[in-house]
Design a protein around this nucleic acid. Structure first.
Lengths: 339, 339
DNA sequence: CTGAAAGCGCTTACAG
DNA sequence: CTGAAAGCGCTTACAG
């Protein structure tokens, strides 16, 4: 295990100063083309690669972004990891990943901070106001992905966020369900305090109110597959008072609902009940599900995240929230009812 | 954006030297308890956190592990990310993530190397022998996850790996299929050069040979959902010569097969054809699929990876390959045939 | 265009 | 137990 060659080794071999070596590897630094060639050749010979850690120490730019996630079972998040990581790689950035199952996102973040990350993306977790304060103090941009800052006591340290237009998405579904003659519409919530769930529900309820309707029933699945199945069993327990449509706060739960409706309750979708989800994960398109859903535009969300991050890393711009439109994708789980 | 407090700031406030501050934050360093208390208090007051980058420079231990993946659509990989990342976090390590869609894993790895990672895990990608050489030279342990080193020209730089007992897994399926009376067994391969696909196929063929049988047909799905669907269409194109069982190299393709068989070919599973997968991803258990499959024990694989990594980081131990047993999980996609 | 020097924020022998 | 000093591998003014 011999240690890596350093800029000094290269300098010696190329017959230049160590500073010259550094310049040869720095975009736009002033080096004579011939010198640079000689240095690069020497570097190649020794297998030299600049030490990014040493560079970070002095430039105070690690080109690392911390990504905090809590669970990957919902296929939407692997997609986010994939796209975000690729987008960042294109800019020469890298993703330091943190999985926080429990609520100790704070301990984990304290950890991240030690690594001098240039920014933090929080998906499927929220930042405590204490840490939000620390990040703001330290000038580390934070963007909340698919969730919105909770304004707590320390609400003034506002954090950037990117979300879909969840309320509009919920409204779209509500309007479509009303238009197709549904009258007993049930809502399957995610986490009770998640902005995504809250906003989608608000949109749905608005659309219902416009039609003089209100929620027929309401269950809570906490964005969990098994919780969702349990909630659906309850929602459909009374055969005399069944919903004619179920709108789930995400596809993951909508699929759980589909499975439960068919396998456990012996109901047909869409003949007996219509089902709608949110996200448009890859499985929603599988023939077994053919789920009608609202598409979250991952690419646009990732792009917005990248931009928000970089504009804050580069400048001193304030936190800002961005919102991405979403569209209804109609497949086969909704059927018009005649009343 | 004021910059973070340093050990010097803390030292000044606590009235000690900067070295003392460093010791207060170093496990087992010799500091008087009272001094340490005073320092910790000062640090808390200033919001000081040791700079992990500076520490890395001097200790030559980044506590960062590079994880290289190529695509996350197959649910098996998000599971791996989640478990591996959690296991490493428990040891105070962090995961730097790299998504390499194309074959330019080399460029990406060169990138990782700059970050002075303490080790590298390669999943769903293989390491070129050139880079394997570099890593060995630099003393950076590499472990291949779910794939095995290709012995090329530079084969002497062997790389550690952890895999399931793929051949045995394939054999298990072959024996079960034979035992249940199947005679026209088709194989749906993954990537043609992937050790997982090759080994599982070899195991299957062994079991068939033992029964005096051989493969009835063979398709290639390249571990891709749509490729798999296409391959299944071909495999079942001739109604007069249909396989009575299909074994896919992973669940992702087995599910694709299920969808195609039912939705496009109007066949019933298991009545018309039996289907078996490999991995036991969460979806395999969903009622719509109830897929019979071979379970890869992710937790044991992750544990083995962690151990292999650490024994190499700590000592000078040689590369080693570890193999994890797998078991057949029988669900509802296989039906006995009477001939 | 190039080199000598200072310094990024730490850890770690070395004395005391 | 504690401090002064050297040094990890770089970048970046500053002179020339």
């Amino acid at each position: 295990m011999k240690s890596n060659p350093t800029a000094h080794d290269v300098a010696r071999l190329a017959g230049v100063s160590q500073s010259a070596v550094s310049r040869a590897f720095t975009e736009g630094a002033s080096v004579a083309p011939a010198t640079r060639e000689r240095i690069l050749a020497a570097a190649r010979e020794l297998g030299y690669r600049p030490n990014a850690i040493a560079r970070t120490l002095i430039t105070r730019r690690s080109r690392i972004v911390g990504l905090v996630m809590s669970y990957l079972e919902n296929q939407f998040y692997p997609l986010v990891i994939e796209r975000l990581s690729q987008a960042l790689q294109r800019d020469g950035y890298h993703v330091l990943l943190f999985i926080s199952e429990t609520a100790d996102a704070d301990a984990i973040l304290a950890d991240i901070l030690q690594y001098q990350v240039d920014g933090i993306v929080m998906a499927s977790t929220t930042l405590s106001s204490g840490l939000a304060h620390d990040c703001a103090e330290a000038g580390i941009p934070v963007v909340l992905f698919n969730r919105v800052a909770q304004l707590g006591a320390m609400g003034r340290f506002s954090t950037s966020s990117v979300t879909s237009q969840n309320r509009e998405g919920g409204r779209l579904v509500g309007e479509m369900l009303v238009r197709t003659g549904h009258r007993r519409i049930a809502w399957l919530a995610g986490q009770e305090n998640a902005s995504t769930s809250l906003d989608r529900e608000a949109g749905l309820c608005e659309a219902l109110a416009d039609a003089g309707l209100s929620l027929h029933a309401r269950g809570v699945g906490r964005y969990d597959f098994n919780e969702a199945r349990r909630a659906v069993m309850e929602l459909f327990a009374d055969p005399a008072d069944r919903p004619d449509a179920l709108f789930a706060a995400n596809d993951h739960m909508a699929i759980a609902a589909l499975e439960t409706l068919r396998a456990d309750l012996g109901l047909r979708v869409p003949e007996d009940v219509s089902v709608v989800g949110f996200d448009n994960v890859p499985q929603a398109a599988w023939p077994s599900f053919a789920l009608t859903t609202v598409q979250q535009d991952v690419d646009s969300m990732v792009e917005a995240t990248r931009n928000l991050l970089f504009e804050q890393i580069e400048g001193e711009v304030m936190a800002r929230s961005e919102t991405v439109p979403c569209v209804l994708v109609e497949r086969a789980t909704v059927q018009a009812r005649r009343n």
